[in-house]
Nucleic acid binder design. Structure first.
Lengths: 240, 240
DNA sequence: GGACCAATTTGGTCTAACCAAACTGGACAG
DNA sequence: CTGTCCAGTTTGGTTAGACCAAATTGGTCC
């Protein structure tokens, strides 16, 4: 059973994210909320702390006020994706674009800083994608492993933190898409092989190009799966 | 006067960031810390909540343990930059690289999505950089304004959140550098003009190129200021 | 030497006050 | 009537102490 403050926070987060409270509107007082949720004030207080940490509300003496989304913390993305039965397509694409761009720097910095051994590890992770025939699931996993190792090898801490956070919030909300994911294995194989060779030669521009293509294909793959699931849901709604 | 929990949190954050506690080491119990800081347990508890939110520690029944930096939240960057009398040069560059990359997507998405009016606003912000002679301070401000508007105009929420967070943590810790910032106004003017023209034609590749140059110059400017201040500190240390 | 169990320690929650800042409404002076 | 100011009320902020449940620990028994 989740803590009471989590329930309260979750409820308030949902209320704010679905615009049941306007920006700059005052939230009910902590004492009122305590009564409404049949909890003590400490629990409400912890929930408010969470809202503040997420950057969704500013709480200070006199009352707590809803803030604008653009001032929120990165962690709200997960909550926004979880809203509704299917995540918002625009937001999903935005996240993918950002991830894709970050992977670009990661690849470049990896090439600049990584030891030969680290490069070898990454190359070995690219090989299955063009030397083996993988199940859909194994292929997805292999792609993720490759991206992940490149991020770590970049040794760029801010980059690692952002990427980890985005992946961490993205993955769980995309689980509904897995059964409809259909990657173009041949195209991935082409790019993976280009990437492998570019890594071998430590050719920065070539890595950038190959990786941009790889990353973009990854993004398109996810967007196609997303569209497919959305179509399924449409069908379902009609047959009901 | 800052709240007591802020002092406690600050002290613990510093201890963790300076490796006075190893990764995975157990922190003292909340009750012990309450005695050490002459505070009640509630205050310590709030401080621990902060550590957990920053991703620096994992607190659960049985004890709180220090986590690895790579699992931290984006907000730790500010604390890491504030460590020592001058921020860590590597970290500063890493942040600048990430910002630079994000600005690239921002520029591209802005061009795709922004209305003519919004483009005009951004263009008007680029003009002072090549049509006027600005003081060093005004120039820095103008650059920042331009970057900021492009980020907002991109309408990419995750991007906005990340950029806002990074700028917000970066700026206050770089204030020591302002008096040594020497931007190459002529080079900036060249790129600003290129950017302006590319925006006018809505030429995506041209915007990318111009902006990459602009952004990279920005990064180099800051790194040079950083090196200058570090040299000053070295001099100072010698003459003592 | 290893498995198990109970005592202790730890964080998690709750109650119930009191403080200080912010807001509110009415009295008062212009 | 209007604006100002001040006191009362409401709000979040902080503290204290007690109790609960999970984790750890250390001893005991097989």
């Amino acid at each position: 059973m989740p803590g009471k403050h989590d329930q309260i926070a979750g409820s308030l987060i949902q209320d704010i994210l679905t615009r049941r409270y306007d920006v700059n509107e005052r939230l009910p007082s902590e004492r009122d909320l305590a009564v409404r949720f049949n909890a003590n004030r400490g629990a409400v207080r912890e929930a408010m702390k969470k809202l503040e940490q997420l950057g969704l509300a500013e709480v200070k003496p006199g009352g707590a006020r809803v803030k604008d989304r653009s001032e929120a913390s990165l962690d709200v993305i997960g909550h926004m994706l979880a809203q509704g039965e299917l995540p918002d397509a625009v937001l999903v694409d935005q996240v993918l674009v950002v991830i894709s761009s970050l992977m670009g720097i990661a690849a470049e910095q990896t090439l600049e800083l990584a030891t030969d051994e680290e490069i070898d590890v990454i190359r070995s992770l690219s090989k299955p994608l063009y030397q083996q025939t993988l199940t859909e699931e194994a292929h997805t996993l292999a792609r993720f492993e490759l991206l992940n190792h490149i991020i770590v090898a970049s040794k760029n801490l801010p980059l690692q933190i952002i990427a980890r956070s985005l992946f961490g919030q993205f993955t769980p909300n995309m689980s509904a898409l897995h059964h409809r994911t259909q990657a173009d294995h041949e195209l991935f194989a082409t790019f993976a092989q280009q990437l492998d060779r570019a890594l071998e030669r430590r050719d920065v521009p070539a890595v950038r190009v190959a990786f941009a293509a790889f990353s973009d294909l990854n993004r398109k793959t996810m967007m196609r799966a997303f569209a497919a699931v959305r179509a399924d849901l449409g069908q379902e709604a009609q047959s009901t």
